[in-house]
Design a protein around this nucleic acid. Structure first.
Lengths: 115, 115
DNA sequence: TCCATAGTTCTAGAATAATAGAATAGATGG
DNA sequence: CCATCTATTCTATTATTCTAGAACTATGGA
């Protein structure tokens, strides 16, 4: 991962609302959540939520697909792992002693929720 | 870890200069680096570097101790691990399947560099 | 076609963060 | 105790991000 990508990802996460939304998506797993679900969970006004989701998208942390009237957001787990790996890269001068390479390898989305 | 602590830590890392400095410290391990070392590596003017280091300190990501005229900065590995754990907490709805609890357990600082 | 639902874009004022020069403080050696 | 080295604080300017109302677009059902 490039430094600029990591900065963008960290900046995207460095906000109470966005971090909360991202964590909900991480916990939701590969099926993701709709924008409406996120709005219901967080109580953020639609325009503000869109603004925040856009920041997460630009950073490559989440991706979304339309499902009828809803838009389903999902975490990009590869990007999540890459970010964690970047932070801990060569930790203590010896990569093998510290951080693992992969944190999460989620299953495919269920058929119901696949794009 | 509390959400506000995580946001503060992420915000502190969400900057090219600070991220670079933090990663240098992560790789330096428990012995840390002096402010002067960091300045030499990054080329950032002193006042600006202090400003950035202060952000990392406030966020609890690094701590420092004076050693003669120098100030030695070290990563707080517990905080680093807590942040990574917070991001991946209950990942995919099942903590045990995904993220590990601890990433790095560094040795104590060498005697030479201990406070 | 008409309506309700789900999200986005536009906009602009308010708040926060970044940058770095100059002055300052703290430690050590001569 | 003075010069020097190391780093911080003060300050002001510039730049970026946040917030959310209002208007708009897209989808699907009646």
């Amino acid at each position: 991962m490039e430094s600029k990508t990591a900065v963008a990802a960290l900046a995207a996460l460095a906000h109470e609302s966005r971090l909360a939304g991202y964590r909900l998506l991480v916990q939701a797993g590969p099926d993701g959540l709709s924008v409406g679900d996120l709005q219901a969970s967080t109580g953020i006004p639609p325009a503000t939520l869109t603004h925040h989701l856009h920041a997460l998208r630009r950073a490559g942390l989440i991706a979304d697909t339309r499902d009828g009237r809803s838009i389903i957001c999902r975490v990009d787990y590869a990007q999540m792992n890459a970010l964690l790996a970047f932070l801990t890269e060569n930790c203590c001068g010896d990569a093998s002693a510290c951080a693992p390479r992969t944190v999460c390898k989620p299953d495919r989305p269920t058929r119901r929720n696949r794009p």
